[in-house]
Nucleic acid binder design. Structure first.
Length: 693
RNA sequence: GCCGGGAUAGCUCAGUGGUAGAGCAGCUCACUCGUAAUGAGCAGGCCGCGGGUUCAAGUCCCGCUCCCGGCUCCA
């Protein structure tokens, strides 16, 4: 007996058909073009394969490859195809997991032999064959015990482990050609739909990210619906490689890291140091304008300080061994906060003084495992643009708001215009996420494969409430957090209001990272998107319910009694090292005029113009313009080339003409292909004016 | 820390067991030049460090240091 089912399409059309209805067939009937472009479908908002069958009334939307949902499906399917290729080339390989990720996909394998770069080329070639063969992807739901048996027979212990953790009735086995895999799906209708695919690198990765587990070989790749999109992406990777701050840092003579000093320790060369000085000056000025006091604190302190602060107990693994002096132990500082607290504590504090804001460019040292160091981005000694705000509870929201605005203002000065803002909450129930903060994304985070702590813990969830999440996935964390539940809720709601007031009107949808907070309080992180759209962590604004208690911080209120004090840690740029690395890549080394270590290179055409060149240089320098004269015995063309390679914003060319007319001839960097940028001769005075705007 | 790949002149890199190379940069000399490289010459090396195999090691083996791609962690 067939049943008539009602199908509501995206455009509102309703189709009635005798069921069951196969989606691919329905798609084909609607339109040939649609069928060719479709990669999957959504039934009642849920993604599903085109090979699925419809048995009930439903709304149906076909996902074509121009939709954002299509990309992960492409990539996930690409991962399966790669796994199939690897199993063909290396029989006996055991499969780990193979998800789609932000810019592509990966698959983890336990290959008996090693996988090397030239071997992945063979894998890629094999993948092409699989694509050409155009195997359909099909799936069937399997009873748990049968699914387990299936993978036992195939000698896939990792898959078996995954199935054992699944609820009964949810295991699905996908098959394409001779290959089958445990998977949630959905997938492309067939392997032939995969057009642009490229394998990128091989790396080790622990099974389920745990270093106690065996290490698997992870192959990274990327995939796009068309060859062109793939080529564009590969071009972007090339561009990123050109901007690599380690490469530019060497070429532009900005900094170095040397064996004799040790890994993760930065030597700032004169040009890098000058840029840093400019940023520091700007930073200090802005802080003074906004009611911060600047402080300086030492690099080491008695171990007792770190015992009081709790770092000795909870942060020891990141700290260097004690330094013994006169039979007393001193520790190199990993953070600045305890010092700022000591300054705060030198007096009784009145409510009239609050908030007190101490800022410091504080250099800290943290032990980082050798494998994680990376240029300027991840180092062992770095200078934080740190500050601590001591305030009354009722001032918290205002201070938070100021911090967020301040951070965005500072970052915008460096031509960052796109931000990713994340609220990391604690383990207590909070209404923060109910306050209009992108609940859909939150939900997606909790149930989906996207990102955030839910996935980090390997949670597969259909949970709705915050409390449930904690109880269900983080019971062990319930008691690991400092402070009272009420304080967390108070702080998180304050932050949520700030985000609503400041961030949402800017068109930014804040993200929420459940239980992403530090144990001592919730935080807001701000990431910037650089010129290539890559994200960099800069600002972090963190509440602290812990240190005020440990140091017994308080203030005297209008009632003459002691009151509990709130404390906020915050960094706007993060650290000078990381931020500098980020700036180098953002600007590709072409620092804007105000940051450029050399702003003007004067290029005399012949030796007889040297005097005039120096005369101009003196005048520019008197006007605080950073100027150099290229008086080498080179041709003008060579000097221009070198100034271009040094990425100097202005070249001033002087020869007979200029000397006679008392003018300068200006060439802006990168003028090569755009003659409009080539300015005509002008007076030195006019040239100097361009720096004053 | 772990898996994999590396380290040769200041820089970028070639060198498959038989006398260490190129380009650029540097130095010297000549050229005095109009919008991205003038020419010639000279100099430059514990081939990352230590051990081993060999008649012979930059090259093969072992250990270490550091770098790169990841895992993990974070400013």
């Amino acid at each position: 007996m067939s049943k008539t089912i009602k199908i509501t399409l995206k455009n509102g059309d309703v189709i009635e058909k005798d069921g069951p209805v196969k989606l691919s067939q329905l798609c084909q009937e609607i339109g040939k073009k649609l069928f060719e472009a479709a990669v999957a479908a959504k039934i009642n908002g849920k993604l599903i394969d085109l090979s699925s069958v419809l048995e009930e009334d439903a709304t149906v939307e076909f996902i074509t490859f121009d939709k954002p949902e299509a990309l992960p499906i492409f990539r996930h399917s690409a991962a399966h195809i790669m796994a199939q290729a690897v199993k063909r080339l290396f029989p006996g390989t055991k499969l780990g997991i193979g998800p789609a990720i932000e810019n592509g996909f990966y698959y983890d394998f336990d290959t008996q032999g090693r996988l090397t770069q030239d071997q992945i080329e063979k894998v890629e070639a094999e993948m092409k064959k699989i694509v050409e063969a155009d195997y359909p992807f099909s799936f069937k739901k399997e009873r748990k015990d049968l699914a387990i048996k299936h993978f036992q027979d195939q000698n896939e212990p990792f898959k078996e482990e995954l199935i054992r953790e699944l609820p009964e009735g949810t295991a699905r086995i996908y098959t394409q050609g001779e290959f089958s895999d445990l998977c949630r799906g959905p997938h492309l209708p067939s392997t032939g739909k995969l057009k642009g695919v490229k394998l990128l690198s091989v790396a080790g990765a622990y099974w389920r990210g745990n270093e106690k587990n065996p290490m698997l070989q992870r192959v990274y790749g990327t995939a796009f619906p068309t060859k062109k999109e793939l080529d564009d992406y590969l071009k972007k990777l090339e561009e990123a490689a050109k901007r690599d701050h380690r490469k530019l840092g060497k070429e532009l003579d900005l900094f170095s890291i040397q064996d004799l000093t040790g890994p993760g320790l930065i030597l700032w060369h004169p040009k890098g140091a000058l840029i840093r000085k400019i940023v520091e000056d700007y930073w200090r000025d802005e802080h003074l304008k906004r009611g911060y006091d600047l402080v300086y604190t030492p690099h080491i302190a008695r171990v007792d300080l770190w015992k009081t602060s709790g770092h000795w107990d909870f942060y020891k693994e990141n700290m260097y061994s004690p330094i013994e002096v006169e039979e007393q132990e001193f520790m190199l500082k990993p953070m600045n906060c305890p010092f700022h607290i000591l300054i705060f504590k030198t007096k009784r504090r009145s409510y009239r003084e609050l908030p007190i804001r101490y800022g410091e460019l504080g250099t800290v040292y943290r032990y980082e495992r050798s494998g994680v160091l990376h240029g300027l981005m991840r180092v062992r000694g770095f200078t934080q643009d740190d500050a601590h705000i001591f305030c009354a509870p009722e001032q918290l929201e205002q201070e938070m708001e100021s911090c967020v605005r301040f951070a965005l203002d500072l970052l915008k000065r460096f031509e960052f215009h796109e931000f990713v803002i994340t609220l990391s909450t604690g383990p207590h129930p909070s209404k923060a996420w109910e306050m209009g903060l992108n609940p859909e994304e939150l939900h997606q985070k909790l149930i989906g494969e996207t990102s955030g702590s839910a996935r980090r813990e390997g949670a597969v969830s259909r949970v709705i409430t915050y409390q449930d999440i904690v109880d269900r996935f983080y019971p062990e964390k319930k008691n690991e957090f400092a402070g009272e539940k009420e304080e967390w809720v108070y702080a998180e709601e304050a932050v949520a209001r700030v985000l609503q007031k400041v961030v949402i009107p800017m068109g930014i949808n804040p993200e929420i990272d459940i239980i992403g907070a530090a144990f001592y309080g919730p935080k807001i992180d701000i990431k910037v998107k650089d010129a290539l759209g890559r994200e960099w962590q800069c600002s972090t604004i963190q509440f602290d319910f812990n240190l005020p208690r440990r140091f017994d911080l308080n203030y005297i209120g209008p009632d003459g009694k002691e009151h509990k004090l709130y404390m906020v840690h915050r960094a706007m740029l993060g650290s000078f090292e990381r931020f500098f690395g980020c700036l180098i890549e953002h600007y590709a080394g072409d620092f804007p005029l105000w940051l450029a270590p050399v702003q003007v290179k004067i290029i005399p055409i012949a030796e007889r113009h040297h005097d005039y060149a120096y005369q101009i240089a003196e005048e520019l320098k008197r006007n605080q313009i950073r100027t150099e004269v290229d008086d080498r015995g080179e041709k003008m063309q060579a000097k221009i080339r070198d100034a271009e390679l040094e990425k100097i914003p202005y070249m001033v060319i002087v020869g007979d003409e200029e000397e006679k007319n008392k003018t300068v001839n200006i060439r802006k960097r990168k003028a090569q292909s755009d003659l409009r940028l080539l300015q005509t001769a002008q007076s030195v005075h006019d040239f100097i004016k361009t720096f004053k705007t």
